[in-house]
Design a protein around this nucleic acid. Structure first.
Lengths: 184, 184
DNA sequence: CAAGGCATGTAAATCGTTACATGATTTA
DNA sequence: TAAATCATGTAACGATTTACATGCCTTG
């Protein structure tokens, strides 16, 4: 169901194909939402049947037609309805890395340390991407589209990701030190 | 597949029933992993067929038998194998709250602010639970079970949750101020 | 006396991933 | 010339949720 709202959210900016939507999911929301084409295409079909979007085919030579989906007034109403719902969830609920760590006591010190060091590396790399590329991409998108109001939220979310990652990094550094000292 | 490792991880402490495992998932790992009984029971059955666990039935009057599952040497090997794998994931990948916020530009200022204020409230409540109840529960569990080594990881994960939540809170406070000032 | 805990499950539906299929064009 | 991009999809499988089913015992 949530994927539906993600698609409606993007279609609210203008008509697009499933392929276009996939690219937007990959470049804009991949840190907190994504989907495969094999999920997107059937979802769009379902949304059309429910009157949330309409389709227009643009023939192409040698390729399948581009199928442009346009959000309907009803689709827009459904999107706004969802967006207006109170944000009453507390946390994203599955994190395999933490589950891993929860049982890590069964491993020896060196294996655990190398796992944590890999995480540290990955998160540092991620942070530098968020502070570099991602920040630039958002500014560029705001410049090109003139979406200042929406851009405020994009930038806010980017900063959230950066702050969470910084916190992870600091925690990993401490955890590594602690384990080096305290664990036998 | 991950649920399997969660169950093996707990069964590695000793034989248990599906019902017991559900309670452990609810009290110990609910912040980063959980499952319903309707998923746990079939999963255990499957694990038995694969030789990861064995079952022993303890008859009860008026209730279904308690079915105790015991981890096998093979099960332990499979668990250790999984635990030893490098932690190469970067982030938990779906967060409906962020997706919501990503499209929040379509809403009016007051609705957005009340949504963010609700999030702030929820995260503050969550933090106080993590710093209170949860911390106490971990200390108590370490005291009762004598699992000092494992307890180190439980406490580390708890602190991770607390730090991430503190970061969320600070970010939400800033975001609310910014939106109050900058947004029309 | 109703609600919740104990203890087991099954069935149906939804959500999501991976693999497969086509076929032209562009890039390395 | 191999791989990636464009553009559509289907099929099979696996993961997860929700609803249903039983029946006793304990707590409010």
């Amino acid at each position: 169901m949530t994927l539906q709202y993600a698609l409606l959210g993007f279609l609210n900016y203008g008509p697009m194909t499933g392929y276009d939507l996939k690219k937007l999911l990959d470049t804009s929301t991949q840190m907190f939402w994504h989907a495969e084409l094999s999920q997107i295409y059937p979802q769009l079909k379902k949304m059309e049947k429910e009157g949330l979007v309409t389709v227009m085919c643009e023939p192409q030579a040698g390729k399948p037609d581009r199928k442009y989906y346009t959000i309907t007034p009803h689709g827009r109403a459904v999107l706004l309805q969802w967006l207006s719902e109170p944000l009453d969830e507390v946390l994203p609920d599955k994190d395999p890395v933490l589950l891993h760590l929860f049982f890590a006591g069964a491993l020896n010190k060196q294996v655990i340390l190398s796992q944590l060091r890999l995480q540290l590396e990955l998160r540092r790399a991620y942070l530098s991407r968020v502070e570099g590329e991602v920040a630039g991409f958002i500014q560029e998108t705001i410049r090109v589209t003139g979406q200042k109001r929406d851009g405020l939220f994009w930038e806010l979310i980017r900063r959230y990701g950066a702050e969470q990652t910084r916190t992870s990094i600091a925690w990993l550094e401490e955890a590594i030190q602690l384990i080096e000292k305290e664990l036998s």
